[in-house]
Nucleic acid binder design. Structure first.
Lengths: 222, 222
DNA sequence: GGAAACCCCCAGAATTTTTAAGGATTTTCT
DNA sequence: AGAAAATCCTTAAAAATTCTGGGGGTTTCC
């Protein structure tokens, strides 16, 4: 009987216990599943670092948003994922996220290229079991809402460069027009040019920025 | 008992009978599944056109390569998909393909944005059942090998414009360097510039075109 | 050996992007 | 309501990028 080691990191302790219970009771031919847990960024980081010189985890299950203890700065699970890819490239990485935010999904798929991505409202015992088996045997596993976001992205023929993406992102965060230049290395008039260009790409000519953001959201860019 | 109508179009008659048998025996709560079949492009097209004014199919299951009778020109299922999207937008569309060719998958995901994509070697009775249920209830469904191609694409941060893609595509098809200019509206020296640029993007500087193609394939572009 | 194909580099031309400046319109705030 | 601020649009010159044609070197294949 081989052992399948899973490390789950989520700052809600009770939900994590739920995962642990479900995961450890999965029937998986030839495998005995053991779940370690951590509920802070720091604790998780430590366990991953420790694993480098001992038993590697087969799967790291990372919550996208994590709070450090006694802080109100959220650490992103994304950072932890990037770190883990370097330290323990053998371990498969899967993310769990509360929101099916296109921008976040796209970003994580690029930066970490995880073996799984689960939107939390998609998770139930059955999908969790499917996910674990798929991630081990035949990755990747993307849950239904994640797939919807991925589909939007793949169906798009609009190509945006980094600056365009930054403009869209900051606009969507409510950044005022005149403050954009502080975030993006371009002159105000260039930003306007690009905004106009973006509006024509998304078919929202002569409409305001809100229309642009909505169109970009629908197409999966934000 | 509602009826779920599926139209399967594949030029190999026997495999299609296999699909029909499996599909019509699926247990799907509240649905009675009926499968129509066609084994040529023309026959399929006709059935789709006829369906406009009668019962719409719930799912169109299209083989990517189709041969017309008495011709040796293959018609692409992609064309049929594009047509069907216009004529019967209510019908869900799923593709079946023999090869898990990244270029083809990317192209179809853009042009048709199908509700399902199945690589044939991934298909067995269970996945076919999963696929149908997912496509009806909660699309999209992508089979394992399709997901692998999609994953490669999503994980990439290299952005190529149309001309770059054309160059890669034609190179991968074995087009000779000096014939590239016949396919791509660029001067020979521009093509060289772009090829050099591509090689640096893919980290194959000072290597030959083969190395470039292999790198591009691995990253999911071709 | 010789022709054809491939690969590399250069410099001017052509194109696209950026920038600054000026003005019109709308929004916000008092 | 009126002033100030922010947004939106246009234009024209500067800057950056891309395209192109040419020269020349190396490899490949008759």
């Amino acid at each position: 009987m081989k052992t399948l080691r899973i490390l789950a990191i989520d700052d809600h302790e009770m939900t994590m216990l739920g995962y642990k219970f479900i995961l450890e009771n999965i029937e998986f031919e030839g495998y005995d599943i053991i779940v370690d847990t951590a509920n802070t960024y720091e604790a998780g980081k430590k366990l991953i670092e420790d694993s480098v010189n001992s038993f590697k985890y087969d799967i790291l299950l990372l919550d996208v948003q994590l709070f450090a203890p006694n802080e109100n700065q959220p650490h992103s699970g994304e950072d932890l994922g990037i770190l883990a890819r370097k330290l323990v490239p053998q371990s498969k990485i899967a993310f769990m996220s509360s929101f099916s935010d296109n921008f976040r999904i796209n970003s994580i798929l690029k930066s970490v290229d995880p073996d799984g991505y689960l939107v939390k409202t998609d998770i139930d015992p059955k999908t969790l079991e499917d996910a674990v088996k798929t991630i081990v045997l035949n990755p990747p596993y993307y849950s239904s809402k994640a797939l919807t976001a991925i589909r939007k992205k793949m169906a798009n023929d609009i190509e945006l460069d980094e600056k365009d993406k930054q403009i869209l992102y900051h606009l969507s965060m409510g950044t005022k027009n005149k403050d954009l230049e502080k975030h993006i290395r371009l002159s105000p008039s260039s930003i306007e040019n690009r905004k106009r260009h973006l509006k024509s790409l998304f078919g929202t000519e002569n409409e305001n920025d809100m229309a642009l953001i909505i169109a970009a959201k629908n197409r999966g860019f934000i």
